[in-house]
Design a protein around this nucleic acid. Sequence first.
DNA 1: TTGTAAGCGTTATCAA
DNA 2: TTGATAACGCTTACAA
Lengths: 353, 353
Amino acid sequence: MTPHPTPARRSRRGHGRATLSDVAALAEVTKITVSRFLREPERVAEGTAERIRAALAATGYVPNKQAGQLASGRSNIVAALIPNLGHSIFGETVQALSEGLQAAGLELLLASTGYSPQREEEQLHTVLGWAPAAVVVTGRRHTPGALALLHEAHAAGTPVLEVWDHHPEHKAPFAQIGFDHAQVGRAMARHLLDAGHRRLAYLDSGVATDFRAHERGAAFVAEAKQAKAKVTMLTAVTGDPFDAGRQAFTTLRALPALPSAVACANDHLACGLLLEAQARGVAVPGELALLGFGDFPVGRQLKPALSTVRPPSQEIGRAAAQAVVEALEHATPARSQALPWQLLARGSTAQSA
Amino acid sequence: MTPHPTPARRSRRGHGRATLSDVAALAEVTKITVSRFLREPERVAEGTAERIRAALAATGYVPNKQAGQLASGRSNIVAALIPNLGHSIFGETVQALSEGLQAAGLELLLASTGYSPQREEEQLHTVLGWAPAAVVVTGRRHTPGALALLHEAHAAGTPVLEVWDHHPEHKAPFAQIGFDHAQVGRAMARHLLDAGHRRLAYLDSGVATDFRAHERGAAFVAEAKQAKAKVTMLTAVTGDPFDAGRQAFTTLRALPALPSAVACANDHLACGLLLEAQARGVAVPGELALLGFGDFPVGRQLKPALSTVRPPSQEIGRAAAQAVVEALEHATPARSQALPWQLLARGSTAQSA
DNA sequence: TTGTAAGCGTTATCAA
DNA sequence: TTGATAACGCTTACAA
């Protein structure tokens, strides 16, 4: 069966949608002219353009991107790997990222990793099959395999961004859009030390692979030790973080001496702890000062309001989108950016004296 | 320049990554054998398979999906259009959707619409270019253009799902995975009426295109009127919903008679209203009962705790993923599903008597 | 068990 | 200003 070019032809494989050839046949030009009209309309004569417009409308043509990107070797997909979209902080980042990319004609291929480096590697492998225009991953800790893939992508000229982290001494060539968690941890310790606390604790995330929480915790402990304060590192149980926070109160009680101030890996833990402490008759901040992380809306509503650190969730998404767009425009690697966070001192760490 | 098949060949267009041909050359087979090995390993002789495995590893081959999906005419992309990922309810839906799709080997192409039907149409047009395996949109209200695209996709056999809504009399052929907002609105009214309230108000969302909030509101008003109660419909100002809730208190005050109970389009509005009422010395629920929607974490922490409706955010995502997978498996349209919500009666609507 | 040929729908290149 | 031709990297159909 020789292929014949009549309009009515339909091969055994097509999926029924109008193609460039269909439009071209209707407009009585060849498909390359239609393709050209779509990308550089000014290079097509007005009469021709008019017929093409009509044909486009009549067929309801939607360009096939698989075909287009295969032929051009260019992709407009940006792949992003995020621990959990249900967490408001990441949701805000992704929302801002999505908006910034859309404005530049880029599309977002999203995968969640559930904080698992292993799943991150798998998802990375998966999304890389699209030869994405840029890759966005969360944090700077990856499996060796994932790292290899990222390096390969970077070497091939694909901008690679690590969001939600910005380590001053990071040696990987990827762009970091975020902030220094160690710095936050130190600031959290200092905030409590400055208020006169000498018995501190850090309630770490129960998620073993929440590296950023651990990093804040380690820096918190180091800073406290340097100030010669007593400091204990606790780890929350896994499961609902509110409940984990409540449970942590029991653990605190079991310590030789109750700390006078506890910093938490996130606001949910801190809220649980705060509510449980109050329920057990421990005054906050009088007997126990509490400091969270994340600035979740709930913290503001407690009595006392929860002191916390506001991370630049939205800003990270916005900056990442912008960095991708610039890198693509100038064909350079994306630029790193340290974004400001704020320590919000509220009631739960107010000085009693 | 005749193309020659030696391994070292690199055409003017390729992007440098290893292709099937490279792997095949290294394994001393043809590319179709490698392709076959990748999809049906058992159909390849063990010796050959071994050589192919080695070649795969040596080249770091990553299959090009644009090419694969173009050739096969099948897509593993599921496109989802969501109003705003920064809203926790949608974040949870997308997280669950993402997990469900990943488990089935599907990938998530995500676009946000910012509650704008116009942007939804644009994004729909964009993502449809990938000939996605399924399309997920939020709600059942769309522009005529978007509707035409959805119908076309449906007619072509692509499962189309409308999430976060389930209207019993919906005539479109798309699967609805969600719940009946009118039913929720009526239940909210009944909850307040049953507690003896006769002067009601509904504080609607300031987002003009949050159709689901309006629908709950309309049903709330209808139910109240049927019970011969006084009922007022208010609309929140745009901007931060907490503040909008606070401001709404002023509007309430300006009414001839202060309602004894107000239902809100979402918990943030309700929280703002609650806090402002208390600040102005109005007792909740004594003088003013308040009912929200969304079961945002913050509501549980207020004093009194906010009565609200818990929508099945996660369940919607999970069910949508499952519906997509089933529809794809059986090559049938996706099945609709009504998911249960709960009215959580807490302190803010507790009966005073 | 493996291979040949053709084609998916688009764009790059070069020619007219 | 338009077109012919050859890719892009893969899979389907069919043959050996």
